[in-house]
C-alpha cells in the first residue's frame, strides 16, 4: 500500500474525528475573535477548567459505547468520586495523595462492578447501569448530604491555573527561568486532559483487550470465534470507564473545592457525555471511534455553551440550543439511511 492510499484510508476511517477537529477549530477561533480578551492565556485557562470534567466523562462513556453498549452511570460515578474527593483530598501532602488514590480507586471499583454485573449477571448494560447509577448517587448522598467540602487550597490553585502558577505554588524551580517561558502559559487542566487522553487511552487501545473491545462492537460472534477474551474485554471496558469518570469527579471536586451530590447534574453529565461521544464520531452501534474523538466532541459542546456568555443570548435559550445541537448531531448519522441499497440492512 502506498503512503498516499494509506493516508486516504486513514482519512476515510476517521472522517468523523477529523470533521470534529475542524469544527472545533473553527468555532473556537471565532469565539476568540468575538471575545473581548480573546487569544489570551486567561481565557484559555478558564475554558479549559470548565471542560475537564465533561471531557473525562465523555471519554468514560466512549468505551462502553465502542462495545455497542451504553453506560448510564458515568455521571453518577463522577458525582460519587467528587463527593469522596471533597472529604478526603486535604491535609498533609501524603493525605492528599492518599485521598486522590482512594477517589480514583473507588470510581474504578464501581466501573469494575458494572462490568461484572453486565458480563456475569448477563444484564443489558443500559438497564444495569441505570440501576447502578442510582446506587452511586445514593452513596454520594450518604457521603455528602449537603453540598460542601474541603479541598486543599494549594492544590486547587495549582491545578486550575497555568503551568507557571503550578511551578510557583509548589516551588519546584524558578518559574521565571528563560527556558520555561515558552510553555509557562499552558493551562494545567489542558495538560491533564492531554496526558490522560494520550497516555491512558492510546496505549490501551493497542492492547489485546483494547482491540477486542473494537472487535466486539463490530461483530461479537466473529470476535468470539477468533478466540478473543470477550468477557475480560467487557469488564475492562466498564472498569476503564469508571476510572475516567472518577478522574472527572476528582478534578471537578478540586476545581470547585467542594462536592455536590446533585442528581440533576449527574443526569446532565450523562446526557452530555453521550452527545459528546456522538459528536466525536463514535458510532452508537459500536466498533468505530475512540476516546480522542469524544474529547474533541466534549470540547465542542463546551465551546457552544461559551458562546452564550459573549453573545448575550438569553440564557433561558441555552437548554433549547443544546438540545437542538444534540439532535442535529445525531441526525447527521441518518444520511446512512439514504445510502442503503437493501432496505433489510436497516433493521439490524
Amino acid at each position: 500500500m502506498t503512503a498516499m492510499s494509506a493516508l486516504s484510508t486513514n482519512m476515510r476511517q476517521n472522517r468523523g474525528l477529523y470533521g470534529a477537529v475542524i469544527l472545533l477549530s473553527i468555532i473556537y477561533l471565532i469565539y476568540n475573535i468575538l471575545h473581548p480578551r480573546g487569544f489570551s492565556s486567561a481565557v484559555l485557562i478558564q475554558n479549559a477548567n470548565e471542560s475537564v470534567a465533561i471531557v473525562f466523562v465523555a471519554m468514560a462513556q466512549t468505551i462502553p459505547v465502542l462495545l455497542g453498549g451504553l453506560d448510564l452511570s458515568v455521571g453518577a460515578v463522577m458525582t460519587l468520586a467528587a463527593c469522596i474527593a471533597s472529604v478526603l483530598v486535604n491535609g498533609s501532602p501524603l493525605q492528599i495523595v492518599f485521598g486522590m488514590v482512594v477517589t480514583l480507586a473507588a470510581g474504578t471499583a464501581f466501573g469494575l462492578c458494572n462490568g461484572l454485573i453486565v458480563v456475569y449477571g448477563r444484564i443489558q448494560p443500559i438497564i444495569a447501569t441505570l440501576a447502578t447509577g442510582a446506587i452511586a448517587i445514593g452513596l454520594a448522598l450518604f457521603i455528602r448530604p449537603k453540598p460542601g467540602g474541603d479541598i486543599d487550597g494549594d492544590l486547587n490553585w495549582a491545578l486550575t491555573n497555568s503551568l507557571w502558577d503550578f511551578v510557583e505554588t509548589y516551588g519546584l524551580f524558578d518559574p521565571d527561568a528563560p527556558w520555561f517561558a515558552p510553555v509557562a502559559w499552558i493551562p494545567v487542566p489542558l495538560l491533564i486532559i492531554l496526558v490522560f487522553g494520550v497516555c491512558v487511552w492510546l496505549p490501551f487501545r493497542r492492547t489485546v483487550l483494547g482491540r477486542t473491545i473494537y472487535a466486539i462492537g463490530s461483530a461479537e460472534g466473529a470476535a468470539f470465534m477468533s478466540g478473543l477474551p470477550i468477557n475480560r474485554a467487557k469488564v475492562a471496558a466498564f472498569t476503564l470507564g469508571g476510572f475516567f469518570a472518577s478522574c472527572g469527579g476528582l478534578y471537578l471536586a478540586i476545581q470547585t473545592a467542594s462536592g455536590n451530590a446533585d442528581i440533576t447534574q449527574a443526569g446532565a453529565y450523562t446526557l452530555n457525555s453521550i452527545a459528546a461521544v456522538v459528536l466525536g464520531g463514535t458510532s452508537l452501534l459500536g466498533g468505530m471511534g475512540g476516546a480522542i474523538g469524544s474529547l474533541i466532541g466534549a470540547l465542542i459542546l463546551r465551546v457552544i455553551s461559551f458562546y452564550f456568555r459573549i453573545l448575550s443570548i438569553d440564557p433561558l435559550l441555552q437548554p433549547l440550543v443544546e438540545g437542538i445541537v444534540l439532535l442535529a448531531a445525531v441526525s447527521l448519522g441518518a444520511f446512512r439511511v439514504l445510502r442503503v441499497k437493501n432496505r433489510l440492512e436497516l433493521f439490524r
Binding site: 451504553l70 443500559i126 446526557l271 453521550i274 452527545a275 456522538v278 452508537l284 452501534l285 435559550l317 441555552q318 437548554p319 433549547l320 440550543v321 443544546e322 438540545g323 437542538i324 444534540l326 439532535l327 445525531v330 441526525s331 448519522g333 441518518a334
Partner: peptide, 16 residues
C-alpha cells in the same frame, strides 16, 4: 437513530 439518544435529545429540546 438509536432511540436512546434520539429521545434524550427530544427530552432536552422539550426542556429547553
Amino acid at each position: 437513530i438509536p432511540s436512546m439518544i434520539f429521545t434524550l435529545g427530544v427530552d432536552s429540546v422539550m426542556r429547553g
